[in-house]
Each structure stands twice: as C-alpha cells, then as structure tokens.
Amino acid sequence: LTVEVTLDGRRIELHGLSEEAHEILRHALERNADDKEIKKILEELRK
C-alpha cells in the first residue's frame, strides 16, 4: 500500500506499507498528528 504524507513541508510517498502500517498512519493523519508524531510512527514501523 502507498500513503502520501507531508513532512517538513515536503510531500513524500511511502510505498510497500503493510495493512497495519497503513491503518496506523491513516489514523494519525486523520487526527492531524504533527510532524514529530508522524516521524516517530515511521521510525517504529521501520523496525
């Protein structure tokens, strides 16, 4: 799955996400998580 997010003013596409990762990010974006929170989530998903 692919998600497009804006971090530090740049639009980035995240490819190859699992369903779980996609859901976690989608929920964070829906509640307008800040860049710091999104980065933390991405860091966790990379593990």
Rank of each mutant, 00 (worst) to 15 (best):
L29K: 04
L45C: 06
A28S: 02
K36P: 06
L42H: 00
E20D: 09
R11E: 05
R11Y: 06
R10C: 13
E13F: 15
V3E: 03
D35R: 04
D34F: 05
E23R: 15
T6Y: 07
R46L: 15
K40E: 11
L25K: 00
D34N: 11
E30M: 15
D8C: 15
E4L: 13
E19Y: 14
I12S: 02
R46Q: 13
A21F: 10
E23G: 10
L17W: 04
L42T: 01
T6E: 08
G9N: 04
L14C: 05
R46N: 12
L17I: 06
R46K: 12
R46C: 14
H15G: 07
G16M: 06
A33W: 06
H15V: 12
T6C: 14
I38C: 03
E44Y: 15
E20L: 09
A33Q: 04
L17H: 01
E44P: 01
K36Q: 12
H15S: 12
V5F: 07
K36W: 13
R26W: 03
I12H: 05
E43G: 10
T6N: 07
K39V: 09
L14R: 00
V5A: 02
V3G: 03
N32H: 11
K40M: 13
T2E: 03
E20A: 11
S18L: 03
G9T: 03
E37W: 07
K36R: 12
E23A: 14
V5H: 01
I12R: 03
L45T: 03
K47L: 15
A21V: 08
L7P: 02
G16L: 07
S18P: 06
N32A: 09
E30G: 09
R31Y: 06
D34R: 05
L14Y: 06
L17S: 01
K36D: 13
K39F: 14
I24V: 09
E37S: 06
E30S: 14
L29T: 03
D8R: 06
T6H: 08
S18Q: 03
A33D: 03
I38T: 01
E20N: 08
K40L: 12
R26D: 01
L42G: 00
A28M: 08
K39L: 13
G16C: 08
E20T: 10
K47I: 15
I38W: 04
A33L: 08
V3M: 15
I41H: 01
I24K: 11
H22L: 14
V5T: 02
L14F: 08
I38K: 01
V5N: 02
T2A: 06
H15E: 08
L29F: 10
L45D: 01
R31I: 07
H27E: 11
L7Y: 03
L14D: 01
E23M: 15
H15M: 09
R11L: 11
E44W: 15
D8E: 09
E19G: 07
I24Y: 10
L1Y: 14
D35G: 08
E20P: 04
A21E: 14
T6D: 05
E20M: 10
R31C: 06
A33E: 04
I12M: 08
R11T: 12
A21D: 11
R31P: 01
D8W: 01
H22S: 11
E4R: 07
H27K: 14
K39D: 05
I38P: 00
D35V: 09
E30Y: 10
D35E: 14
K40I: 09
T2H: 07
I41A: 01
R11S: 05
G16D: 10
E23Y: 11
L17Q: 01
L7M: 07
T2C: 12
S18C: 04
L45M: 10
G9W: 03
L45R: 01
K47S: 12
I38V: 06
E20V: 09
R31F: 06
I38D: 00
V3Y: 06
L1A: 06
H22K: 10
K39Y: 15
A21T: 05
R31E: 05
E20H: 10
H22E: 09
R26G: 02
A33G: 04
T6R: 05
L1R: 10
